[in-house]
Design a binder for these strands. Structure first.
Lengths: 130, 130
DNA sequence: CCCAGGGTAAGACAAACTGTCTGAACTCGC
DNA sequence: GCGAGTTCAGACAGTTTGTCTTACCCTGGG
């Protein structure tokens, strides 16, 4: 299953994506006002270019119906973070992420509630991969 | 604990790091022979430059005792992967990695043995952070 | 009608990054 | 002292990244 052919995004692109996650579908104008308050025409163009690149990367969908296009994130925050973490694990240790999980559990402090949740997930039967 | 001030590494740098992880401390010559078999003087210089950058990034330690320096990874594979995953989670969702763990557990298939290990880790009392 | 204000599209641009490569100086054993 | 092997310093082209400019296209109000 081709899950993570979605490339990484740059810092500025991430800013736009975060804004879309927070505010929902928006126009360039709305995004510009949020990301560059008191920003001029050039910042508007910057956001425009960032959205164009995000669209090519498959992270943003553009609705061309109206004259003024409306942009929306085409991937949820959680899925994106998950894919990105998986990509890092893939690149660095060849896909076996169990050691990574172990390391994270050892070094991160996790609340009791979250631990409970994780325990529950671990106890569910894992669907077999073909 | 200033854990993750270690920056990311590029693809070529990662190749060198992997070689160091696999083979242990090595000289430039050994690394060049491994990474660029039948490589000439220029590849030697390439490895040299990559090691220099890795040293600056704090990923590689150089032993200058002998005339021919010996290089070693200054971070274990597991710690590096962990730090990198943590950095990604930090950048993308502000440090709370529990949702990431949840997502990974949900979407990745993990062997029963590994699940057992993770369960055990989850059951140990978490040391309180100051 | 026309034209001003907002929108899109296309691309130029400098700065930084990446991988590669060149040249000079330096050290050792013979 | 020579030559092979090493370190050091930096040049270099190709790509990426964030910014910005320009030209063009709609649409609504006078």
């Amino acid at each position: 299953m081709p899950a993570h052919d979605r490339p990484d995004v740059t810092d500025a692109e991430l800013g736009v994506l975060q804004a879309l996650w927070d505010d929902g579908p928006s126009t360039i104008r709305q995004l510009t006002d949020r990301l560059y308050p008191s920003g001029g025409t050039s910042h508007y163009a910057t956001v425009q270019k960032l959205l164009e690149r995000l669209e090519q990367k498959g992270c943003v969908a553009r609705n061309r119906a109206a004259m003024t296009h409306v942009f929306a994130a085409s991937v949820s925050r959680e899925a994106f973070v998950g894919d990105r973490v998986r990509a890092v694990a893939e690149r660095l240790c060849g896909g076996s992420i169990a050691p990574v999980l172990t390391h994270l559990l050892k070094t991160e402090s996790i609340s009791e509630g979250d631990r409970k949740e994780l325990r529950k997930l671990l106890n569910t039967i894992q669907p077999k991969m073909p």
